[in-house]
Amino acid sequence: MAHSGTEKQVLTAREAGLLGCGTCGRVSPKGTTVCPRCETPLHSRRPGSIEKVWAWWLAGIFAYIPANLYPMLRTSFLGREQDSTIVGGVIDLIHHGSFLIAAIVFFASVIIPVSKFFAVGYLAWTVKGRAHISEHQRTVLYEVVEFVGRWSMIDVFVVAVLAALVNLGFVVNFKPGIAAFFFALSVAFTMISALSLDPRLIWDNSTGDGASDE
């Protein structure tokens, strides 16, 4: 893993007066509009990247609020109906002693979305300002956020399986709640938000002086 510690003087495609494709990496002369290799529109930096990140980020947060306030699942057990929210479902699991599953659901539905809001917000904020962590660490953060976002959908799928499978007449059955809809929206919006971020912006202010130790 050891990156050679010597931070060499790095020349970027932009500094060299060239256009690097953000999809395939092919280098084209300035003025080229479409990448000849992968046929995506060429931009030295994707236009409006940060604005898009913030717009989808905000939409994601707005959808996440009702996702937590409204019921995710309606359980009917021997004629008694009970609504449970995301956090309520986790608490039920703990009461049943399923700690591992409670942890998975809590992680996927609460920890991941919330830390994703913070992480994407931090990355977008520090593109223009000053960051407390190095470009390397922010790149890792960006990659983790991109990778992990879709796994938040687990809870929506759990609700789908429960509602479709458990239909034991009067004894017990599950119905999906409206929160599932808002939650899925929130996941999709935050995924788009993270995908809108052009990672090259993270590195643009670094100027290669390698001041941050490591």
């Binding site: 790095v10 970027t12 060239l18 990496g25 470009e135 990672p199 993270i202 590195w203 643009d204 290669g208």
Partner: peptide, 28 residues
């Protein structure tokens, strides 16, 4: 030439030996 899609650093492309990965000198 190839530009890193993560940090835009410019690299020359050598012949890549089997089972090898070419990594960006700046961001890895």
């Amino acid at each position: 030439l190839i530009a890193c899609v993560v940090c835009d650093a410019l690299h020359t492309v050598p012949t890549i030996p089997p089972k090898a990965a070419l990594r960006c000198v700046r961001c890895g």
